[in-house]
Computed example of a mutant assay.
Amino acid sequence: MISEYMEHRVNSLTESGILSAVTVLMALIGVYVPFLGLVAILLWPLPITVLVVRHGFRWGVMAAVVASVLIAVIIEPTVAVRLALAFAPVGLALGYGYRLGWSGIRLVTAAIVVSVLAKGIALMMVFFLTGIHPFSGQLEMLRESYTQAAEMYKGMGMNEVQIEMAKQSFEHNLGVIEILLPLVVVTMGLLDTMVNFIVAGKVFKRLGMEVPVLPPFREWRLPQAFAWLFGASLVAAYIGHANEIPILFQAGMNGYMAATLAGLVEGVVVFEYAMAHYNWSRWASTIFLIMIFMNGLLFQILAIAGILDTVFDYRKKFFGAER
């Protein structure tokens, strides 16, 4: 009995050390290797998820702490803080849900909530420690890139009036990006959760484990709350703009865009369901979707149709789908 316990402890320590080293290596790739670094950062929580599932929540926390300390020493303390606060909770949440056998929907929903909260806390912590806006570097990089491009076009003889108009358009778009930064944080939380959920599922399947899965894409149906969010956000954005209340306008714009993106997903789901119902080929439906995404008006129609589907359920009304 004692020997089995000691063997388990040794295995846990060994695997924890190996996976901690993997997280440090992924952080190094994320900081110093272009393009591949983005993938490494997105998958940074994965070793923690594996460790929690195989050995328990405590081992996952210990590995995250050890990896963060090593990253602080090897790279930079602020990088360690950002990774530990923004990404480690995602790995812990996914591992915890996998270990308890949660359904795919419950697991993904909980992990997304944890991820978004973690990234919000990480950004506030970075601002508190450095006094620098978390996205200031990226926004400044965009401005510098545009300035260089404008100089290049000017050297090629481009009309200065056109360059000035392009500059005004660019500054407007950059202002929109700044307004939508909260939505960027939510999107980041959604993206890294889904990537790690999918990859972790493949890893655990290779290890012979049963893993929770999400319903088929054509059966997805988002809650009616997105329709209410869409309407309330339009009202909030209008009142905020008309009465010069920046925070209300920003909240309204972020809610509007979030609801629109959700409606777009729902619209694609309904479109795919209709194509399958009428036995259209995959190639035909893909071509039609590409055409829709390339046309601004059709793009908006698809998003609004998706938002309305959360209320009216077209698949049940028109195709007899059972709920």
Rank of each mutant, 00 (worst) to 15 (best):
M1F: 12
I2A: 13
E4K: 11
Y5W: 05
E15F: 04
S20V: 03
Y32E: 03
L38Y: 13
W44S: 07
L46V: 07
I48A: 03
T49P: 06
H55I: 04
S68W: 00
S68Y: 08
R82M: 14
R82C: 06
A86L: 00
F87V: 05
V90W: 00
G91M: 02
A93T: 07
W102G: 10
I112A: 04
F128V: 13
G137A: 09
E140N: 15
Y146P: 02
E160K: 09
I163C: 04
E164P: 03
M165V: 14
S169V: 04
F170P: 01
L174M: 04
I177D: 05
E178I: 03
V186K: 05
L191R: 12
D192T: 15
V195F: 07
V199L: 01
V203L: 05
E210D: 14
P215C: 13
P216S: 09
F217I: 13
W220Q: 03
G231M: 09
L234P: 00
L234G: 04
Y238T: 13
M253E: 02
N254T: 12
Y256I: 14
W280A: 09
S285T: 12
I287R: 11
M291N: 13
L297D: 06
L298Y: 13
L302N: 00
A303M: 03
I304V: 14
I304F: 04
G306F: 12
K317T: 12
K317N: 12
F318E: 10
A321H: 10
E322S: 11
R323M: 13
